[in-house]
Simulated assay, not measured.
Amino acid sequence: MIQPGAILLDRDGTIIVERDYLRDPTLVELEASAVEGLRKLTSAGWRLVVLTNQSGVARGYFDRQLVDTINAVVHKKLEQHGICVSGWFVCPHGQSDGCACRKPMPGLAVEASVMLGIDLKASWMIGDKVSDIALAQAIEGRAILVRTGHATTMDENAAHACNAWVADNLDEAAEIVLSNTVGRSSSLR
């Protein structure tokens, strides 16, 4: 059964190993638990959608074409494990640009919702930064902070304050989603 919402995923530090402004597609490496977790979610009928801030474009570190190339490499690596991502949505702006698409602003999620017919309130955002958790709040969805990327103790405290879960990795995050698809359970946070 296809779920009305989607699993909205951060890319760097969540699906792939954080490389701080990844500029080399040959360095793309899936997080250790990514395949297991994403398989569980797709098997349960969840669509996967990637929402990624790529301020390296605005900073001149790389261009949008490189971002798209790296996304294609990640997509192919996931497909090799039978995992399909329904959409890739990128914010190329910097923090000071004032755009509506840079997480925690809801622009990327709204764009995904319109293009893919996603119920954002029935969706989960999984990422390694407070901006990912804040995006979930902005769309009235649920959130999980994963400890695989940039997450710090301060981020974990902020996640708890926002009524979000904290998981060690995507596999554990998938278990949280699957255990909480109807209502919330504070026992898992």
Rank of each mutant, 00 (worst) to 15 (best):
K103H: 10
E36G: 00
G149Y: 07
L66V: 01
V35F: 04
N157M: 15
L108W: 04
A159E: 05
N163V: 13
S43I: 03
R47V: 03
N169E: 03
I144T: 12
A6V: 08
T42D: 03
K121M: 07
K103D: 10
T148S: 13
S187E: 14
L116D: 02
I83H: 02
E31Q: 14
V90I: 14
A173I: 08
P25V: 01
H93D: 11
L8Y: 02
M154P: 05
H81F: 01
T52I: 11
C162W: 11
F62G: 00
M115C: 08
Q95F: 10
Q54E: 15
E18C: 11
T42H: 02
D119V: 06
D168W: 00
W88D: 04
T26S: 14
L178I: 09
R184I: 13
H150P: 01
M154Y: 11
A112T: 03
K76T: 15
I139K: 10
G82C: 04
G56V: 06
P104I: 10
T69G: 02
D119H: 13
E156I: 11
A122D: 09
V73C: 00
A164D: 04
E140I: 04
R11M: 06
N163Q: 15
A32D: 02
T26V: 09
I133V: 15
L108V: 06
M1T: 13
G60E: 13
D168K: 06
S123E: 02
L170A: 02
E36L: 07
Y61A: 08
E156G: 13
Q137H: 10
P92R: 07
A167E: 05
A164H: 00
A164F: 01
P92Y: 11
A143G: 12
M125A: 11
C101D: 09
A174C: 10
R19S: 07
A167S: 09
K103T: 12
L145K: 13
V49T: 03
V73M: 01
E79F: 03
A134L: 15
Q54V: 12
L66P: 04
M105F: 06
L188D: 08
A159S: 10
T26D: 15
I83Y: 02
E31D: 12
A161N: 08
D171L: 06
A34I: 01
W124Y: 03
V73F: 00
L108P: 07
L38G: 05
A159Q: 08
S43F: 07
G5L: 05
E140C: 09
S43W: 08
V67D: 09
E111I: 09
R147V: 04
I2P: 11
R59N: 08
L51T: 08
W124A: 02
A173H: 04
L108S: 05
L48D: 01
N163K: 13
A58G: 14
C99V: 01
T26L: 08
V50M: 08
A161P: 00
D10P: 12
W46P: 04
T69I: 10
R59W: 09
I83K: 00
D97F: 01
G117W: 06
K121Q: 15
I144W: 11
T52L: 07
W46D: 06
G37W: 08
T52A: 12
A112H: 04
Q95I: 14
A109G: 08
Q95L: 15
D97H: 03
S113F: 03
I176G: 00
G127C: 05
I144H: 14
D128K: 12
N169C: 04
G13Q: 15
R39P: 00
M154F: 10
V177C: 03
R19D: 01
V67F: 05
M115G: 07
E172A: 15
L108I: 05
A58E: 12
